[in-house]
C-alpha cells in the first residue's frame, strides 16, 4: 500500500496531532519502513475469524481522573 502525505494527514487528524511538512516527509519514510517490517505476518497462515469487531482494549488500570490537568 502506498503511503501518501494525504493519507498521513488524515491519520494525523484522527490522532489530533499536527506536523510540519518536513515532519510529514520523515513520517512517510517511517511508515514505509514499518509497513515493510510488518509484511512478514502475511506469510503466517491464520484461521482466526472474529465473530464481531474486536477493538484494542482500553485500560481500567488507573483512575485517570487523578491525572487531570
Amino acid at each position: 500500500m502506498e503511503v501518501t502525505e494525504t493519507l498521513l494527514k488524515q491519520v494525523a487528524k484522527m490522532c489530533r496531532l499536527n506536523f510540519t511538512e518536513e515532519q510529514y516527509r520523515s513520517l512517510k519514510d517511517e511508515f514505509d519502513r514499518s509497513l515493510a517490517d510488518v509484511e512478514v505476518i502475511f506469510t503466517i497462515p491464520t484461521s482466526f475469524v472474529a465473530e464481531e469487531k474486536i477493538q484494542p482494549p482500553e485500560t481500567d488500570d488507573i483512575e485517570y481522573s487523578k491525572l487531570r490537568a
Binding site: 484522527m14 517511517e30 511508515f31 472474529a50 484494542p56
Partner: peptide, 22 residues
C-alpha cells in the same frame, strides 16, 4: 500514528485482525 493506521476502518482487518490471529 502507526497504531491508529493499523487499527482503523479500512486497515483493521488487514493488520489488526491478522495480528490477533498470528
Amino acid at each position: 500514528m502507526l497504531g491508529k493506521f493499523f487499527a482503523t476502518d479500512s486497515r483493521y482487518e488487514k493488520y489488526y485482525l491478522k495480528a490477533i490471529g498470528v
